[in-house]
């Protein structure tokens, strides 16, 4: 099973949630943590894996035979990403703009372009306390991360719980991470910024056809903004993690939330069972029903919530 942890807004707690979820899942079964935020991976700070192997990831890039080239300009004309410029006596390539689509080497009338390879980053694998760990690391200055994210996702293990820690936002790298997941947890914070970006993230996940549920981090105990949005959109609000100074202190020192607050483990366990028992279909067809069944198990601040009504 593939569970993606994403958020529209950055800094809401994706890695906090994903790392604690992995630790709790590892007590029951096999789990692998895949850090798909290849531009700024940080899951290793929480889970501290021992590295076992690494592999370079390459993407195709045009190689131009200047002797065969007639400088007709066709390649620059068809390049949708403006990676090629044809001067009167020279062809310039901007490798970081290239998406490796192959249009230029297929369409060059002089047959002067052939595919070459260019390294864009690394996939590293290891393990931590029984948790499989994979992360991608994009080389500095590279612009295009989806092929590296794809290489990370190729390390998913069927039959195990695969937790994909996504980059923030709603752009291509996030889409590449969430696409094909069985469930997506959207982490947010109870602020207007959190709500705004949650709305964008929900649209993105819906258009990918991936069922999702919402987790509020740094909950104020009420989270009215987020709660209303979830109700209006029939989204399950799965977990409200309190704003906790000790957890924040632990985070700053690279200590996962459930190690600071072992009593939180049961909430992560309930969240996992919700997803594994078909939260997927429940969330898609009607979150409210699911909420009713599981609500009290995984809500941390049930009393705060009802008390405010």
């Amino acid at each position: 099973m593939l569970v993606a942890v994403a958020s529209g807004k950055g800094g809401t707690g994706k890695t906090t949630l994903a790392s604690s979820l992995a630790l709790v899942a590892a007590e029951k079964g096999k789990v692998i943590f895949l850090d798909c935020d290849v531009e700024e991976p940080n899951g290793h700070i929480m889970l501290k894996p021992r590295w076992e192997k690494k592999e370079a990831v390459r993407v195709p890039v045009p190689e131009i035979n200047q002797e065969k080239c007639t400088f007709c300009g066709r390649c620059a004309e068809i390049c949708a990403f403006h990676a090629l410029v044809v001067l009167p006596q020279e062809v310039l390539l901007f490798p970081t703009m290239c998406h490796g689509c192959g249009g230029c080497w297929h369409l060059c009338p002089a047959g002067a372009i052939s595919p070459g390879w260019r390294e864009i980053g690394l996939v590293e694998e290891g393990s931590s306390e029984g948790i499989g760990f994979v992360r991608g690391r994009l080389n500095v200055g590279e612009a295009i991360s989806p092929p590296l994210i794809e290489a990370v996702k190729e390390r998913c293990r069927p039959g195990e719980l695969n937790i994909l820690d996504a980059p923030p936002g709603t752009s291509c790298p996030v889409i590449r991470t969430v696409k094909g997941a069985d469930f997506c947890l959207l982490v947010t914070e109870p602020t207007p910024f959190g709500l705004h970006d949650l709305e964008l993230a929900c649209e993105m996940v819906a258009s990918l056809g991936v069922p999702c549920g919402v987790v509020v981090n740094r909950s104020d105990g009420d989270d009215r903004l987020i709660r209303q949005f979830c109700q209006q959109n029939n989204l399950p609000l799965l977990l409200q993690l309190p704003h906790d100074r000790e957890v924040a202190r632990g985070y700053a020192r690279g200590i996962p939330a459930v190690k600071v607050r072992p009593e939180w483990k049961e909430y992560f366990a309930a969240l996992l069972s919700f997803i594994e028992e078909g939260g997927c279909t429940g969330a898609r067809t009607g979150g409210a029903q699911r909420e009713g069944r599981h609500g009290q198990d995984y809500r941390l601040r049930e009393s705060g919530r009802t008390g405010s009504r």
């Binding site: 403006h82 410029v85 044809v86």
Partner: peptide, 19 residues
């Protein structure tokens, strides 16, 4: 013609001026 491109506008615009 480069001004509406998604990315690489400067490169495309420079190509226009070369041409």
């Amino acid at each position: 013609t480069g001004c509406h491109s998604g990315g690489g506008a400067g490169i495309q615009t420079a190509q226009l001026l070369v041409n």
